[in-house]
């Protein structure tokens, strides 16, 4: 079933505030097999000027994906989650996210289209602190396999 093009440009409400925790970041670093001291050892992080542990560069996606879940599970969009694969992913950083940050995600659907039998959905999500500081911009292309009209 094709995706609903009416969703192009749709913005989503800010996510509830997410408090980034030190142990969550350690868990994430461990899950990706990253033993770099800066992701585990407070002294190593502080020596680089961080006030707490910084996040690995792809951690932001764990936050932005939740923001996009509202869209992905909206029946009006017509996305079949099982047919979805991740097509492209871009991050632009003002600085790393770090433990102690409390952030919201502001997201919108930038584009919906098709290439051959596959459809794609482009979303942008900004990770912003409660003080309004933009930290990471996330742009994702997800592919809906075989659903083009």
């Amino acid at each position: 079933m094709p995706l609903n093009p009416d969703f192009i440009g749709k913005t989503y409400p800010d996510t509830p505030p997410y408090a980034i925790g030190r142990e969550k970041l350690r868990e994430f670093a461990t899950a990706i097999g990253d033993s770099s001291p800066v992701f585990h050892d407070l002294d190593a992080a502080r020596a680089l000027g961080y006030s707490d542990l910084p996040a690995p560069p792809t951690f932001a996606f764990a936050l932005t994906m939740k923001a996009m879940a509202a869209a992905m599970f909206d029946p009006e969009l017509g996305l079949n989650y099982a047919l979805v694969v991740h097509g492209e992913q871009t991050f632009e950083y003002q600085r790393p996210l770090q433990a102690g940050d409390e952030v919201v995600v502001k997201s919108f659907i930038a584009d919906i289209g098709s290439r051959g039998r596959n459809e794609f959905l482009v979303s942008q999500a900004d990770v912003v602190t409660l003080d309004g500081e933009l930290v990471v911009t996330n742009r994702s292309v997800i592919v809906s396999r075989g659903t083009a009209a």
Partner: peptide, 28 residues
């Protein structure tokens, strides 16, 4: 994202500091 995370790990192991990464893009 697991694959991109592995590339991120490679970058940070080289750089030592994730704060030196300005942008990071991948097409799967």
């Amino acid at each position: 994202m697991y694959t991109q995370a592995q590339l991120g790990r490679l970058l940070v192991e080289w750089l030592g500091d994730p704060g030196r990464i300005v942008s990071f893009s991948v097409r799967f």
